[in-house]
Design a protein around this nucleic acid. Sequence first.
DNA 1: GCTGTCTTTTACATCGTTATACAGCATCGG
DNA 2: CCGATGCTGTATAACGATGTAAAAGACAGC
Lengths: 340, 340
Amino acid sequence: MVISLKDVAARAGVSVKTVSNVVNGYRHVTPATRQRVQQVIDELGYRPNLTARHLRKGRTGIIALALPELGNPYFAELADAVISYAAGLDYIVLLDHTNGRRDQEVLFAQGFRARLIDGLILSPIELENEDLLARGHDAPLVLLGEREYEAPYDHIAIDNVAAARTATRHLIDLGRRRIAFLGARHGRARQTAHLRLRGWREVLAEAGLPHGDALVATTDGYAREDGAQAMARLLDSGASPDAVFCYNDLVAIGAMRALSERGLRVPEHVAVAGFDDIEDGRYCSASLTTIAPHKQAIAQAAVDALIDRLDGDDEAKHAAPRHIRPGFALVRRESTLGKP
Amino acid sequence: MVISLKDVAARAGVSVKTVSNVVNGYRHVTPATRQRVQQVIDELGYRPNLTARHLRKGRTGIIALALPELGNPYFAELADAVISYAAGLDYIVLLDHTNGRRDQEVLFAQGFRARLIDGLILSPIELENEDLLARGHDAPLVLLGEREYEAPYDHIAIDNVAAARTATRHLIDLGRRRIAFLGARHGRARQTAHLRLRGWREVLAEAGLPHGDALVATTDGYAREDGAQAMARLLDSGASPDAVFCYNDLVAIGAMRALSERGLRVPEHVAVAGFDDIEDGRYCSASLTTIAPHKQAIAQAAVDALIDRLDGDDEAKHAAPRHIRPGFALVRRESTLGKP
DNA sequence: GCTGTCTTTTACATCGTTATACAGCATCGG
DNA sequence: CCGATGCTGTATAACGATGTAAAAGACAGC
């Protein structure tokens, strides 16, 4: 049998509201009453019905986190961070994945699961600016990740161009001269890949090094397999790079695999740098040099921004959209430095 | 402004219930009424308040999936499978992590988030049998993963002893004679690690090969780092194995890293086999031979079992606990076979 | 026209909780 | 001793949906 406030109230000989007051730690309850009610609560094993509470309060304390996929360790690690941090602020995170498909991303932006969730943190891949502008829904939305938008929403993203520049500069400083980029993408210029590609190109141009399309390999996705295929294509094309900067760590890991299959050693023949700092990278045969976005900071900024809109005062709620740029660091490892 | 059934009803000039009927596709509504109501719904952009619906129906359509951690790709991949499969059956999955801590696992088993979720799929690490028996809560519970329990709950797990036997047998068949086990654990005999250790020991004993404690390395956890440390310890101890069977792929990846740091080659000097078949394993410098539990089947069995208890007829609801053993396969790769 | 049957629509109660407004009762200062 | 004040506790009305039961309407057959 399911116990409700009413049952506790009857048994304790008080009103329903008094029990509610005890449950919620309301101040003005005599110790005697409180104790008696608490005892009945324990006795009957009462637990609040969250659904009813949500209805009454108009809030659920649930925020959704919509990521492209959990299979990518970067997103899994990020999800972990968001869930943990939100839990500390008494928010429950509902994790969803969009598979990076525009229709699914639009669905979430449009208010899928409306009023089950109080707000949404969305990490879009394909979503377009117009999709956001057409948003008919008013639950707070925080955008995550590197794409740039002009719609009026809080946005958390590290500076991708700067990060790509840092990584590429590192490869140049090591004396590499033919530095390829792995993981470009056809299509619109706002994509994350374009930002990283831009950083790569800028630095190479400044250094007077080759940065033509011959050194750029496109991929369909950003998984290990895409990296392996792209690297193989690049090698077949005769571009003969002495370093590659990859869109992300997964692509880099795939690339390293393709290199090793051809008997090329990392970093002796080809230095490899990635992006994301996923745990795997530290345990590759040549541990992976990479850009480490501060995931903890990203998770916190996203949750804080969202909760500000939810719980903040009116000023916070209607403040202009914020663009927050958490930090990043270049982590130098064996894939560029070689074994100690 | 938030639109409710009431608003639509007022505007359309019908009762609230009629609007509800239209929303729910109830049969006995004249096409004329239906159309008129539908138009107002579209006009006002009405969306049902899920919270109210949940309260009234006593069900939320949300099931929780409590896993140790998302940082382990095996669990991330499994979560992905569960979420996708459940979505196809119109269930929402609320993902939680327990960090493999007993107190957190108990919390979930005890009905944390009661009545926000309809049921729970729990993958315990430290949870004890007595914790389950003391369960005061009645929402359906499905146990996931390899630990064995005697409490009356559905349980989905592959046959760990058989799987460990298969992997160890494979190493023997390759001619290895000093086969170590990495990732044993102190403590109670029901732990998953003990099952895998048992399979390893049985096969070695049958083959008349050494299987003493000198060839067993314990770990505190099951992360890459634990594997690396354990492997290093084993090598320092002078056990000089020519193969290792690891508790899981992460431990195996850590072990391979430790081997390569000492200049030992895989599989020439030491063959390595893991467990889980995580994506990473395919892209290691020597791709990882491993036991591949059929994740899709596990996810489906877990969700099906839970939903049977939720939506099934009375017979299904009160059927005896089921123990389902999805299949597994040995995937032979370079870490035991060598490069082609 | 009336009854009976079937369809369509409605009014109302209800899910379990919290908010509101107020009643009862001390306590306190004057 | 009285009114003001503050603390406790209560009754009742929401929150927004759906289930129930019954009213209203439509239509056939006699």
